[in-house]
């Protein structure tokens, strides 16, 4: 029996293995939305508990990744909603922190790349290029039309290509 079937039957070890395989995707997706490590950790905690409790309800095992990423995204949006009141104050603080990090800390390539993208492009980029979801799946996860996913991906692609001058390299 595969891990997913075992996990659905309540096998904790099998569930852990499933999470192990997707943990960085969960984290990157959270970072793409929240841009704040503490908030992402809160969302992760909730996602792990919610998914462990509800995995029995997952009807089609082949959609496990889509399902758990959707839970993660929902929890991220929930955190945004909760933080909305203080977000304006935090935004200024965050800007200052961002400047600090840019000057004194080295960020990973991916974080540097993502931070140069608009909010709506950042999540699409992570879902498509990092999490390996198809356009169809992303449309389902984000509950938006496939056309919108494609147009955002196209914009993201152009931005990234410009940033890294990929056209020149490939050419």
């Amino acid at each position: 029996m595969d891990n997913l079937t075992l996990a659905r039957k309540g096998d904790k070890e099998a569930f852990s293995k499933l999470i192990q395989g997707i943990k960085s995707k969960l984290y990157k997706t959270g970072m793409a939305i929240l841009k704040n490590n503490d908030d992402v950790c809160d969302a992760l905690q909730e996602t792990l508990i919610n998914s462990y409790k509800n995995i029995k309800k997952l009807n089609n095992p082949k959609y496990f990744n889509t399902w758990i990423i959707r839970i993660m995204i929902n929890n991220c949006y929930e955190i945004i909603r909760k933080n909305k009141r203080v977000s304006e104050i935090n935004e200024k603080m965050q800007q200052n922190m961002d400047n600090y990090y840019e000057i004194y800390c080295e960020k990973s390539d991916m974080e540097n790349l993502l931070n140069k993208l608009d909010n709506e492009l950042r999540l699409i980029t992570v879902l498509y290029y990092y999490d390996d979801f198809s356009v169809k799946h992303i449309a389902k996860i984000l509950n938006i039309p496939e056309g919108t996913v494609k147009s955002r991906l196209s914009r993201a692609r152009k931005s990234i290509a410009n940033i890294y001058k990929l056209n020149e390299d490939i050419d």
């Binding site: 943990k23 984290y27 990157k28 503490d38 992760l44 790349l113 290029y129 692609r157 990929l166």
Partner: peptide, 18 residues
């Protein structure tokens, strides 16, 4: 797309807290 994918997927770092 392949180039972006390889670029992005190189990074598997997650924060110590996570």
């Amino acid at each position: 797309d392949k180039k972006i994918k390889s670029l992005i997927q190189q990074d598997e770092v997650i924060s110590p807290k996570a």
